[in-house]
Amino acid sequence: MDEVLKQKIVSLLDQHRTMRIATIRPDGWPQTTSVGYANVGLTLYFLCGKESQKAANLARDDRVSLAIDDDVDQVMQIKGLSMAAHARRVLDEAEGAQALSLLFARYPAQEGVAFTLPSPADVAIFRVTPTVVSVLDYTQGFAHADLVTCEA
Rank of each mutant, 00 (worst) to 15 (best):
P130Y: 01
V135M: 10
D62S: 10
R127P: 00
S52M: 05
I125Y: 01
A97V: 11
G96V: 02
T131F: 12
S52K: 07
A145F: 14
V132N: 08
V148P: 04
H16R: 03
A97R: 15
A87C: 05
L12C: 07
G36S: 06
S101P: 08
L103W: 02
D14N: 13
F46R: 06
A114I: 06
T43V: 08
S11D: 14
L66R: 00
S119G: 13
V133Q: 07
Q74M: 12
E51T: 10
C48V: 11
V35T: 00
F142M: 03
K6P: 10
Y138D: 11
R20M: 14
Q77Y: 13
R89E: 15
A99Y: 03
M19P: 03
P118M: 07
G141Y: 02
Q140L: 08
I24F: 08
S82N: 15
D61Q: 08
L5H: 09
T32M: 14
G96P: 01
Y138I: 12
G141C: 05
D146G: 09
D71E: 02
T116W: 12
S52E: 08
A143N: 05
T18F: 13
L81N: 03
R88A: 08
W29E: 12
G28I: 07
D2M: 12
D71Q: 05
T116G: 02
L47A: 15
L44W: 04
L44C: 07
S65A: 06
S82Q: 10
T149Y: 11
A105Q: 14
V113S: 00
